[in-house]
Amino acid sequence: MILALQLTLAERFSVGPNWFVPALESFLLIPFTVAAFRQNTKETAPVRIFNVLLIAVVVAFNLASLILLIEALLGGKATSGGILLQNALKLWITNVIGFGLWYWEMDRGGPSRRRMQVKRHEDFLFPQMSNPEFAQPGWVPDFWDYLYVSFTNASAFSPTDTMPLTGRAKMLMTTQSFIALLTITLVAARAVNILK
C-alpha cells in the first residue's frame, strides 16, 4: 500500500520522479522476500537490521516529501487545495503505516521473538498486558495492534491506551507525532484555506 501511495504522489512532492522511491523500496524488498521464504520462524540479525533499514527509508522519504510539500506551500506554489489535500492525506497514511511497521518490528525484539516468546523488555504497554483478564490466553500484540497505536498517535499526537515504556519508543512516537502535526495543521489548514 505504501508503494501505491508513493506512486500516486504528485511528482513535485516526490524525491526525484515519483516512481524512484517505490522502485528503490521494491528493490530493497527483494532480499527480504527471499529471506522470508527461506526461514521458518527464526529471524536472523541481518534480516532484522534490513527490516529496520527499509522502514527507516520509507519514513525518511515520506518526511522529505512532506518538506517539499511545505516548501511549495510557503513559496506560494500550491494553487490547488484539492491536490494539496490529496497529497497531504497520502503522506499522513504513509506515516501511519510506516511507524506502525516500525513499532511492530521494534517492540520486544520484533515479531519473530514475540512469537517464540523470547523474554525481552517491552517497549509498549498494551491494555491487555495491564488487564490480562480482558485478553485471550497467550495474547501477544500483532501488526494490527501496532498499526492502531500508530493511527491513534498520529491522530491525537500522543499515546492513547498503549503507553511507550522505553526511550526509543518515546522518541519514535514523538517523531511520528511531529510529522503528523506538520501534515495536518500546516498543510491541511492551508489546503482548506485555498480550496476553490
Rank of each mutant, 00 (worst) to 15 (best):
L68D: 00
M129N: 07
F37R: 10
V187S: 12
I184V: 14
A169T: 03
V118I: 15
F124N: 05
F32C: 02
I55M: 02
N18F: 03
R12D: 09
L5T: 08
I194V: 14
T41M: 09
G109I: 01
L125H: 08
G98S: 12
G110W: 04
I49W: 15
N87W: 13
R168C: 00
S65F: 08
S158C: 13
Y148L: 06
A78N: 03
A189V: 10
S112P: 02
L165H: 12
A56E: 12
V34Q: 04
G110T: 00
M106A: 04
L66H: 04
E11S: 12
S14V: 09
I2E: 08
G81E: 00
V34K: 05
T44Y: 08
L68E: 02
L195G: 07
S158Y: 06
A191T: 07
W139V: 01
T175Y: 02
R114P: 00
I2W: 01
I67K: 07
E133K: 11
D123L: 01
F151Q: 01
S150N: 08
Y103K: 02
T160K: 04
N193K: 13
F37V: 09
N62W: 06
R115I: 06
G82D: 09
V58F: 11
R114H: 05
D123F: 03
F32R: 06
K196I: 09
L147W: 13
L24T: 08
G138D: 07
F126I: 03
A180P: 02
S112R: 03
E133D: 13
L53H: 09
M173A: 15
Q86C: 05
F124A: 06
F124W: 15
V52Y: 10
L68Q: 14
V58G: 01
S150L: 07
T79M: 06
L182P: 01
K196N: 11
L85E: 06
S177R: 04
V187N: 07
L89W: 13
L53T: 15
M106D: 02
T41V: 08
N87T: 11
K119N: 01
V57T: 10
P159W: 12
E11M: 02
L5F: 14
T166C: 01
W19T: 13
W19K: 09
P22K: 04
I93V: 15
D123N: 08
L24H: 01
F99D: 00
K170A: 05
D161Y: 12
I55K: 00
